[in-house]
Nucleic acid binder design. Structure first.
Length: 559
DNA sequence: GTAGGATGTCATGCC
DNA sequence: ATGGCATGACATCCT
């Protein structure tokens, strides 16, 4: 401490800290002795290193900012500093010394300071060695000249290429050493956002970390904030995610799973809180975004938020998909009529509002597709909700549509309870019957349509037949008229052997089936078509007789 | 409040 | 015997 003013400030700070703890029985020598012993150990080297540490601090700040490339949400510079600054600097913070229960406890404080005088120099020694490297100095210059926006890899690349050949390997090693040292010190390797924002927690973590230096066995507190597990599962105490805990949501980009996975296969309890909790955890496991999975409140918020926006068709489809997912995943225990009505109101409200038109209540202009879908939201999903509630291993679609053999193999491959077995059979039966009913109704409708078409066709055919009949009746009438005229003409020209005409009231003409025409006296009922010998044969085959009646041949027989 | 359409579900018979 | 299909009847929901 060559600078008298700096030393005065240091002494002043010690006095302030001591006065805070004097009521707790801490002697002045605890502070003074430890610090002075430490000051004696470091002396001038410490002074120069402090400068470089400040430089390094600046570097670390910029390195944290550079981490934008990973898309990670970085903590505030204060928390970053808390990680990057050596532990001795942290202890000098008045905020920590005033607030931390560790430093407020004289025994812990003394122990802490004694550890500080022993352990931290190892860390500081490493920093000193690193910062004393010539290539690191070059790296600092590069940082100064290139600005703070370069990613770490780029900076490494630049420094590596710009460095003289012998220094390149050392520079890379130095950077790796820096990052390794930091990660070793705090066991925070990936999302720094998972570090606690509370300085007290940071301090306690650091204390535990430094206390465990040299002990390879990870203590719970050592790994409690570790975010670098391979499967990205954040090891944290129970983390309740809800809309009110926005801070935690921000600082926990990876959702936390504290339940065993196999628990999700168990049938959920009937009590709503537990079901809701499992519902949330299921979302967590499925990797849903927090904004969607935080619960019904947020979903409703998102749904209603969509109300105020003018969204396109794709958005509407997505919204409906979300709604479908939501209703599909809604546990059966939540499926009371009230909840159902509320849900439906929510869904239909969103749908109506997204169409930017007034609610078509009791209006015939309601979009049939929308209303049909709205009804379907409730109806179609019942079995899906039951399946979800019973944690059936097959989807409803598969349950219904799989062939019998595949279906039996599938359900035999799982160990299902009797309730699950019954439900899966019922779902298949209902699904099959549902499709059968739909096809049956469609057939019936088609049948009605076909019958109506047949009725129309038959009506048209009937009209045609009627017209044909009328036409033929007219033709028949005309033919009859012609025949009557012809008959009268024939009868008028007919003569007996004396040249007298026959009386039409006494005789008539009749034609047999073989074409022969007979003159029959009226009142004679010739039932047969066979000509008799006593009947006058008026017309016969030409070779039999010739008569004088026109061009016809008559056979005349007297009465 | 009521009528009517749409749909789901059950019961039953048949293959 | 079993499963699927067809269909009438009823219930429910919605307009």
């Amino acid at each position: 401490m060559d600078d008298p003013s700096a030393q005065f400030q240091h002494e002043d700070l010690i006095d302030i800290l001591w006065r805070q703890d004097v009521d707790l029985g801490v002697k002045r020598e605890i502070f003074d002795g430890c610090l002075r012993q430490r000051e004696e150990e470091n002396t001038r080297a410490r002074e120069t290193e402090l400068k470089r540490e400040q430089e390094f601090e600046r570097i670390m700040q910029r390195l944290q900012k550079l981490d934008k490339e990973t898309g990670e949400f970085l903590p505030s510079p204060s928390s970053v500093n808390s990680q990057a600054v050596p532990f001795s600097e942290t202890l000098h913070s008045t905020e920590f010394t005033q607030r931390s229960p560790v430093t407020q406890n004289p025994l812990l404080s003394a122990l802490l300071l004694s550890q500080k005088s022993q352990k931290p120099p190892c860390q500081e020694q490493a920093f000193s060695e690193l910062l004393s490297l010539p290539d690191l100095q070059y790296y600092l210059d590069v940082l100064e000249s290139e600005g703070s926006s370069l990613p770490l890899e780029d900076i490494t690349e630049i420094s590596h290429h710009n460095l003289p050949e012998p220094q390149r390997e050392n520079s890379t090693d130095a950077l790796c050493g820096i990052t390794q040292t930091i990660s070793d010190s705090f066991e925070v390797s990936q999302p720094l956002s998972c570090m606690p924002s509370d300085p007290i927690e940071i301090l306690e973590t650091c204390i535990q970390t430094f206390s465990d230096q040299g002990n390879p066995t990870p203590s719970p507190s050592n790994t409690i904030y570790s975010c670098s597990t391979p499967d990205n599962h954040v090891i944290l105490p129970k983390c309740h995610i809800n809309s009110s805990d926005s801070t935690l949501s921000e600082f926990c980009p990876y959702t936390i799973n504290t339940s065993k996975p196999e628990q999700l296969n168990c049938a959920p309890g009937r009590d709503a809180p537990q079901t809701l909790l499992q519902f949330e955890e299921r979302h967590v496991l499925l990797g849903f975004d927090d904004s969607v999975s935080v619960g019904s409140l947020d979903l409703e918020t998102s749904l209603y938020a969509a109300d105020t926006l003018s969204i396109g068709q794709s958005d509407k489809d997505e919204l409906e998909s979300i709604q479908s997912d939501y209703t599909d995943l809604l546990p059966l225990s939540m499926h009371s009529d009230a909840v159902e009505a509320t849900l439906y109101e929510t869904v239909t409200s969103a749908q109506h509002q997204t169409q930017n038109e007034p609610t078509p209540k009791n209006s015939n202009q309601a979009n049939p597709l929308t209303t049909s879908r709205a009804a379907g939201v409730r109806r179609v999903c019942r079995d899906e909700q039951r399946a979800q509630a019973m944690s059936l291993p097959l989807s409803v679609h598969d349950i219904i549509n799989l062939p019998v053999e595949a279906f039996n193999e599938a359900i035999n491959s799982y160990k299902l309870s009797s309730a699950q077995h019954t439900l899966i059979r019922d779902i298949r039966r209902r699904g099959k019957n549902k499709m059968a009913a739909q096809s049956c109704r469609k057939r019936k409708l088609d049948c009605f349509i076909d019958l109506e078409d047949e009725i129309e066709r038959l009506k048209r055919e009937k009209e045609q037949i009627k017209e044909e009949n009328e036409r033929r009746a007219r033709e028949l009438q005309e033919t009859k008229e012609k025949l009557k005229k012809l008959y009268n003409e024939v009868f008028r020209r007919l003569r007996d052997e004396h040249g007298n005409s026959y009386n039409p009231r006494e005789y008539k003409l009749q034609q047999s089936t073989d074409g022969t025409v007979y003159l029959l006296p009226r009142g004679t009922a010739n039932k047969t078509n066979t000509p008799t010998e006593d009947l006058p044969l008026l017309y016969n085959k030409p070779e039999v007789q010739q008569s004088s009646f026109g061009d016809c041949n008559f056979t005349h027989q007297g009465p």
